[in-house]
Design a protein around this nucleic acid. Structure first.
Lengths: 203, 203
DNA sequence: ACTCAATCTTGACGGTGTCAATATAAAATG
DNA sequence: CATTTTATATTGACACCGTCAAGATTGAGT
């Protein structure tokens, strides 16, 4: 027994491969995470990973699931420290996702690049859905007379955060940095979404 | 002269390569667009494309620029038919981008996958900036007492639209389709952004 | 007619993912 | 403890990829 804890030859090759893959990802992006490079870095031959990951897609998927779990933990930690204000708790999600994306660009790109991943993977889907469900729960709690459902709000907010990080990482907003924060519209877009951008009179 | 119209041997290999690349993209996604496959489909040898595209990145970049231009044209056409209402004109951008993304998934994924493209390419940047600038112009026209600038609104809205299509293409919202439209929250998220999702009293 | 440059072909190199066959070592069984 | 079974790792091969260098071919300019 204890199959996962101390496998046969290597000790725990699966974990070692994932660690090497994460290092390669941070250093050189998704393209640098090749099966052969991961095997080299771990000190095994090029075909050894095949025992633990069906193919490269499976390796990337497992890596993405791990990263998703870390992001989820980050959000949890911040939510604990957050106050009870609904807006503040909503901002936790946006801030955490943006922080994460800016701090680990390659990880962010990987987990959202679903066409390079196995969409049917359970671990991946559970990790993703977990974050989403918690966001919906926060949005549903004590909201006012909003015209749309919490689900809709969650989809919209999460979409916005995702797209914002994408553009930042691609260098699309460099000319638009605020003098105050040095970051282009980071807080402002969340404010915009909270307040609305329509022509109606504001608060 | 007329270099572009009728080059030397093939007629217009550059254009032919781009057409083949687009077909391959639609059929099999970005991964199917290899230099060799494009050459095969065009009927030339595998090294011929090198005369027109420095490398694969350059080919994908040129393809993306072409696609961006088409998207821009689509928006233009719809804006002409749109009324004068600010909200309606804003919705044109969101609707066009979403329509485009859902209709041509692989094209959408390519043009936003900037880490596979040449970020310094002029044609690409001009095509992208053109869309963004027009969106800012529409947002700036006759908006009310909004708390944030038109730039901020543009970044937020465009981010949201981008993220929404991503999630749709990845099959993340399948369980959330509206009974009315069959599309999950498509109009609603734009409404949410126009109206705001904060707790403040609504219209 | 001649030169020249642009264009395309041929052939090679190292890298990749993946498969089949083999060796090895741990676990299970007697 | 000996033996069998199973999981794991190695070796070697294959086809495909992007890219480079060298040569052949063709159009344009003079």
């Amino acid at each position: 027994m204890a199959k996962r804890a101390a496998p046969y030859h290597h000790g725990d090759l699966r974990r070692a491969l994932l660690a090497a893959a994460l290092a390669l990802l941070d250093e050189g992006g998704v393209d640098a995470v090749t099966i052969r490079a991961v095997a080299r870095r771990t000190g095994v031959t090029h075909a050894a990973p095949a025992n633990h990951f069906r193919d490269r897609e499976a390796l990337l998927t497992a890596l993405a699931a791990e990263i998703f779990t870390k992001l989820s933990a980050l959000i949890s930690k911040r939510l604990e420290k957050a106050g009870g204000s609904r807006d503040a708790r909503i901002r936790v999600f946006a801030d955490a996702a943006i922080d994460f994306g800016l701090r680990h660009p390659h990880r962010f790109r990987l987990i959202w690049r679903r066409d390079s991943l196995d969409g049917a993977d359970d671990a991946l889907n559970r990790a993703m859905d977990g974050i989403y469900d918690r966001l919906v729960a926060e949005l549903a709690a004590g909201r006012g007379r909003a015209a749309v459902s919490a689900d809709t709000q969650a989809i919209g907010l999460w979409s916005m955060v995702h797209g914002y990080v994408c553009m930042r990482l691609d260098g699309n907003l460099v000319s638009k940095a605020d003098e105050a924060t040095g970051e282009p519209r980071r807080k402002a877009i969340v404010t915009a979404f909270l307040d609305g951008i329509g022509g109606g009179a504001k608060k």
